[in-house]
Write a protein that binds this DNA or RNA. Structure first.
Lengths: 144, 144
DNA sequence: ATTATTATTGAAACTTAATCGCAACAGGAG
DNA sequence: CTCCTGTTGCGATTAAGTTTCAATAATAAT
């Protein structure tokens, strides 16, 4: 358990960087929940839990955590970037409700097949992909 | 021809707003090319063509052009939003090269089927969707 | 046409996400 | 324990996008 924290520690060491308490606090806070997050929310959660980590440090460490392959940018909304966990989650896509903001993740094998065919047809080497479907969830949809 | 400009004019009128030369210049410049664009690039293109439209007016009009259904936000990159045409383009997805920035559009009927099934399973009402595949194009891929 | 109403414009100020410079601090190798 | 240098918090800075405001101009009414 805590695989993501160990992975990050190793990643940092192998890059010749330093494992600091601030880094530990940030990575632990990020993975203390399974949800998507943004910098401001993460900062408030840390603060609420007694951490003194600055926003600057969060902004400085997020690129490292991404490079380590533990999180990635998912969407830009309300004027800032939002992130999600990769570690412990297989590749997946999103259904996002425009009204209530709820996000449902889904996995579809057929999608992978399509992507591979498209990539093949274009001699394209896939590194990442993102499928987001936006609309209204079951609670928010208007009687259509 | 010029369907998008007429649509915008009608849209503006029916909202009780006013058709100004600035709006004409902006919408014409946007649709004078088939490519994706961002505000800064659009502003420079307008300026280059002798227009005196300000960036503020571009920022003010883009939401209207989106509401009119002619363009939409496609991705946030390099610190700012990028847009693409909807009018004249059917629903499509993107292959984006991380190295050279080239974007190839593709259409896939199977994808629509998958999306509809996912939406159905989640009682979700689809309003929009976006599938972006990032990686390396045929010119930029490393010998893998 | 003329006038009145009010949306729109450009310029500049402002807001805010994200980055950067700097001095103090601290991890970790030796 | 000491040194080297990466890291931190703070505050300043940058830049995208928004807003304020006075002047302008599109449209409807006259």
């Amino acid at each position: 358990m805590n695989g993501e924290i160990d992975l990050f520690r190793t990643f940092i060491s192998e890059k010749g960087l330093r494992n600091t308490p601030e880094r530990e606090e940030i990575i632990e806070e990020i993975f203390s929940s399974h949800n998507h997050f943004d910098v401001d929310e993460l900062y408030l959660r840390l603060k609420h839990n007694g951490s003194k980590v600055s926003k600057a440090s969060i902004y400085r460490n997020i690129p490292l955590i991404m490079e380590c392959g533990l999180i990635k940018e998912v969407w830009f909304e309300d004027g800032h970037m939002h992130y999600e966990h990769i570690y412990g989650h297989g590749p997946h896509c999103h259904l996002r409700c425009i009204r209530c903001g709820k996000v449902v993740e889904f996995v579809d094998q057929g999608l992978k097949t399509i992507e591979e065919r498209i990539a093949d047809e274009n001699e394209f080497q896939i590194i990442d992909h993102r499928l987001d479907i936006t609309g209204y969830c079951s609670q928010c949809r208007t009687g259509d």
